[in-house]
Amino acid sequence: MGEQETTDIAVLKEQVNSLRDRLSTLEKDVQSKFDRIEKKLDDAIKGRPSWAMAILLSSLMTVCTGLAVYILTH
């Protein structure tokens, strides 16, 4: 191998090592964000929704379905 090829390989190895470090840092950052989101979702989901909320959601789904059927058939 020539000196240029050796230099190119060394540069590529350094870039790969740098990218591995960046990927590792990014994975840790994403994992910590998912952990925070999971905790917030767990806090938000605790308990059942009230009857009013259940009726409201059911009503909205019924209206949306009815409007979708109406739009598609007319």
Rank of each mutant, 00 (worst) to 15 (best):
D29Q: 15
Q15V: 00
D21P: 02
K40S: 13
L26V: 07
G47I: 00
K28W: 04
L67M: 14
M61S: 15
L67G: 03
D42T: 05
Y70R: 08
R22I: 00
T65C: 14
L19W: 04
G66M: 08
A10P: 00
T7K: 15
E38C: 04
E14N: 04
V30H: 02
L56T: 12
I45W: 10
K39I: 02
T6R: 15
R36I: 00
A52Q: 10
I55H: 03
Q4P: 05
S58R: 09
L60N: 07
W51N: 11
L72R: 12
A52W: 08
Q4C: 08
R22L: 12
M1C: 12
D21W: 00
Q31R: 14
T62M: 15
K46N: 04
K46F: 05
T25H: 05
K46W: 02
A54N: 07
Q15I: 06
Y70K: 06
K28M: 10
G2K: 00
D42I: 03
N17Q: 01
G66L: 11
K39W: 02
V30F: 10
I71Y: 13
E3Y: 07
E14Y: 06
V16M: 01
L60V: 14
L26C: 06
I9T: 08
I71S: 10
D8Q: 12
E38S: 14
L12G: 03
L56P: 07
L60R: 09
G66A: 13
G47E: 05
D8S: 11
S18H: 07
S58M: 11
L23V: 04
G47W: 01
R48P: 02
N17K: 07
S58E: 06
N17Y: 00
R20S: 04
V30C: 03
E5S: 10
L19E: 02
G66F: 12
I45M: 14
W51F: 12
D29M: 12
I9M: 12
L57R: 07
R22D: 10
E5A: 13
N17T: 01
K40D: 15
C64F: 13
L56N: 08
